[in-house]
Amino acid sequence: MEQIKQKEKNLNPFETAVEKLYELFDNTVLRYSVLALMVTFLVYLPLSSSLFTQEIMTNMFFYVVVCLGLNIMIGFAGLLHLGYAAFFAVGAYVTGIMSATYGINFWLTLPFSMVAAIIAGLAIAAPTLKLRGDYLAIVTLGFGEIIRYTVRNVGITGGAIGLIGIERPVFFGIVLDKISHFYYMFFILSIIAIFISYRLHDSRLGRAWQYIREDEDAAAAMGINVVSTRLYAFIIGSCFGALAGSFFAAKMTAISPDSFMFIHSVMILLAVVLGGMGKIPGVVLGAIIVTLFPEVSRDIGQYRLIIFALVLLVLMLYRPQGLWPERQFISTKK
């Protein structure tokens, strides 16, 4: 304890403030009341806001889900995935084809969407995960492009035009067709995603991912099966993406290959890196920034991607741990 006090003297004012804040939020009552307040606000929001706001917020929740999915791979397990959009394409197309072409109930398509994601994940990750991490990066990059190419050139996916007429899901007799419905749906999904992320983070599996991320060889020497544990992360992350894709298809009722361009993979990656890889509140923050930024700055339209690239570069060079501030000392309570 004394040593901690000693070290605190070496912190700059910002770091000290962060420590103070963290200490404040070690208080469970305070933490849960702030959370409850936020949830109440978000539940109440659609009742009093414009359709435009609801649309943006829905989009934001969608991003929170996919970013947390990618965070499992890149933030927890240290796997650089550059074709994440392909996984929500897989989910969206499975739901789209089953629903639009064969008229199958939306909820029944979800398991198939997950199975498809698992198969796709295994096909590209199993050969690469036992090799160096860089191979995974380029293979996923290639996979993203191949999926887009395939859906463009195959009859069943509607080619370049895409699929239209995906049925609206029905939830306890209510047809979900208003933006506020989807607002709540994605809100619940993002809460589930946050919940699962936290639970995984503090579990045997989540710790194993972090050990591997920190030092692969030491993890193996501690008896962790590096390849299968990574594969696990990859598959869980893929399922997150595919499920988000299925819901995305249900919301849009029409999908085309352009919804799953490389740039979407990059946006998701940027959100995760921006907020801070592996830090759940950071990733949520990143998702919020990345969805809101284009809305508040429509004028810069064509420069957007260049700005994203520059932000990514500057972040990596000067603040690789992301925006979310790191705690210098780990909680003394737990």
Binding site: Y211, D215, A218, G223, I330
Partner: peptide
Amino acid sequence: RLFKQLSVMENVMSGMHCRT
């Protein structure tokens, strides 16, 4: 070869992975 960014406790807990 410690897991530098993790707590001491988490480091030692890694040893139990193969027994759980």
